[in-house]
């Protein structure tokens, strides 16, 4: 329950932070900065993908655990900046789909974080319990095999999280491309 509340809190905090910062920018007459925060937010989110590259062994530097923590934080921070950039405007479809999909991806990410933590804790608990009961290693492994279904839930989750990311990436690419094409250089 605590973990669920924590995830929801992080999500709500992200949206509230964006609203407050956007309001402050309007208050001091610097709302134009929001336009350029989109660039900063995108760069931050892209930099969070070092974790994905490391997982796929495309890069070999960096500890996966540390990169995962960076992925979570940078994804959150980049999303806040992009929320400020988008503001509360209902002008165009493509950027809006990109923004909605970004929020869904973040929510999905928080769910994944929750599942991962649950799975790890659960497996550890079970291992300790079985050891205390006096089961042999073979029996422990057999028991854990079924419990690894929880880990399988994680894999299922990845099958949703990655395509959602692709939706975000596609619409973001279109948004950025059209900005570059039609910007007042």
């Amino acid at each position: 329950m605590k973990k669920t509340i924590s995830s929801i809190f992080i999500f709500i905090l992200m949206i509230v932070s964006a609203i407050v910062l956007d309001y402050l920018l309007h208050l001091v007459g610097l709302k134009q900065i929001g336009r350029y925060l989109g660039i900063v937010g995108t760069i931050i989110i892209l930099s969070s993908f070092f974790y994905s590259l490391r997982k796929r062994k495309i890069i070999s530097f960096g500890a996966p655990k540390k990169l995962l923590q960076n992925h979570e934080f940078l994804g959150w921070a980049g999303t806040v900046l992009i929320l400020i950039h988008s503001g509360i405007h209902f002008n165009a479809i493509i950027p809006w789909i990109a923004m909605i999909s970004m929020l869904i991806v973040v929510a999905s990410g928080l769910i994944g974080k929750f599942l991962y933590k649950e799975a790890k804790d659960s497996l550890n608990h079970l291992r300790i319990e079985l050891k205390n009961v006096g089961k042999s290693e073979e029996e422990i492994e057999r028991e854990l095999h079924y419990s690894a279904l929880m880990v399988s839930a994680m894999q299922q989750w990845r099958r949703v999280h990655l395509p959602l990311n692709m939706v975000l990436v596609s619409f973001a690419i279109w948004h950025i491309a059209t900005i570059l094409l039609y910007w007042r250089w």
Binding site: A92, I94, L162, P163, M166, V167, F171, I173, W174
Partner: peptide, 27 residues
């Protein structure tokens, strides 16, 4: 599925833009 999703999303976005550039990207 990831590749298919990427391709389909790009296609859908393109179609939206082709139908109405104004409503697709107007700031």
């Amino acid at each position: 599925s990831t590749h298919i999703t990427l391709f389909m999303s790009l296609l859908i976005a393109g179609i939206i833009f082709w139908i109405s550039p104004y409503y697709a990207i107007n700031p």
